[in-house]
Nucleic acid binder design. Sequence first.
DNA 1: CAAGGGGCTGTCA
DNA 2: TTGACAGCCCCTT
Length: 104
Amino acid sequence: MNNREKIWQVVAQIPKGKVATYGQVARLAELPGYARYVGYTMKNLPAGTRLPWFRVVNSQGRLSFPHDSSQYQSQKSKLESEGIVFIGGRFSLKKYQWQPGQES
DNA sequence: CAAGGGGCTGTCA
DNA sequence: TTGACAGCCCCTT
């Protein structure tokens, strides 16, 4: 299993309505410091993947796409459909960040 | 082999 | 609270 797959597994575990930061995903995948690689990996997901990549956000409680890009809108709407509320272009990371162990 | 860049981050001003 | 900076890791030039 390569690092890319480890990342996929972690992302696949993020529960609906919750989000995780790139750095958090990296740590959970036992790859501390690979935050940036996580983003790179999400960018190169196989077409048609069912991975909830939209639940991965940056540590600022914001999305890492240009505010006017279609990708930003796409991710934002997907998160909102799961109950995450955006205020002024961002959301409360404190409130929605995934805490492994309290999922179910 | 070197350089640039990408859905990042923690630190410091 | 923002913005600038320096590290991080990997892939493509």
